[in-house]
Amino acid sequence: MSFYQQTGVLFFGSRLRRISESFLADVNAVYKKHQIRFDAAWFPVFYMLSQKESLSIRDISTELEVSHSAASQLISKLQERGLIKTSSDKEDGRKKVVSFTPKGQKLLRQVEPVWNALQLAMEELLRQSDSTTHLMQAISETETALRKQSIFNRIEKHLK
């Protein structure tokens, strides 16, 4: 049994971060092996834009549950690489709308087969055992519970 497994819930966050980092490193290794200049960190914005022609930065931040500032920073990085462009909303000129550039659309076509393979690989992984079959549901339920009461508040309750 590994150190992380022995310590149980005290290392919950560390274990999730380790799994996430390993996952993202593997996905990025696939992009690199296939000479696709894409970073897994860009996936949420690329995926959202693949589903809708354009989105406001506010829509992106809301959907991803990140700050407007964090969404803007990611958008700026993608814009610097020439993958997306921003323009003013036709109805509200103060609102910035994000869409793919031709270069971004070309990159999207390159990454979509990787996403399809990733989908199949993850489905395969989640069928490995009875426990992993329920992992996505358990993650969703944990996210919902944390929205209702944060870890901070739960710890504070036990310190009183």
Rank of each mutant, 00 (worst) to 15 (best):
L146C: 10
S129Q: 01
R37F: 12
L126I: 03
F11C: 03
Q73P: 01
L64R: 13
H134V: 03
L125E: 06
P44V: 07
V9C: 03
V111D: 09
S2F: 00
A138F: 00
A138G: 05
S20E: 07
A117M: 13
L49W: 01
M1P: 04
F46H: 14
L10T: 09
E123A: 08
D26C: 04
E143Q: 12
R154H: 07
A70R: 06
D130G: 08
Y31E: 14
L74A: 10
I57T: 14
Q73F: 05
L146W: 09
D92C: 06
I60E: 11
H134F: 05
A71C: 00
R15S: 11
S2L: 03
L83N: 07
L159G: 11
H158V: 07
K157H: 07
Q5M: 04
K160A: 11
K103G: 04
Q128K: 10
D59P: 00
Q119T: 15
R109E: 15
W42N: 09
F12R: 05
T133W: 00
V45L: 15
R81Y: 02
S67K: 07
T7C: 02
G13I: 05
Q51M: 13
T142N: 00
S99V: 08
L16V: 02
G93N: 15
K148L: 15
F23E: 11
T101M: 08
A70Y: 04
S140K: 11
R147W: 14
Y4P: 02
V27W: 03
K32H: 14
S72F: 03
R94G: 11
F43M: 13
K33W: 01
S129K: 00
T144S: 14
A121D: 14
V114F: 00
S87Y: 12
L78C: 08
S87K: 10
R154M: 09
P102Y: 02
T7H: 06
V9N: 08
S129F: 00
V66A: 04
L49I: 07
V9A: 06
L159T: 07
T86W: 01
I155K: 05
D59S: 09
K32T: 15
L78H: 05
K33Y: 03
S67C: 08
A71I: 02
S72C: 05
R94M: 12
I57F: 04
S131A: 05
Q149F: 02
E141K: 00
I84Y: 02
S14R: 01
S20K: 09
I155S: 03
F12T: 12
Q105G: 13
S87T: 11
L126H: 03
Q119K: 04
P102T: 08
Y4V: 12
Q79T: 13
S99L: 10
S131C: 01
L135N: 00
S99D: 09
D59K: 06
T62Y: 06
I75P: 02
N153K: 14
V114T: 12
R109P: 00
A40K: 06
M136P: 01
K77D: 08
P44I: 06
F12K: 05
S99I: 05
A40H: 10
V98Q: 11
A29V: 08
K33M: 11
E123R: 04
L83I: 13
K52A: 06
T101G: 10
I84G: 07
N28C: 10
K96Y: 08
L16Y: 01
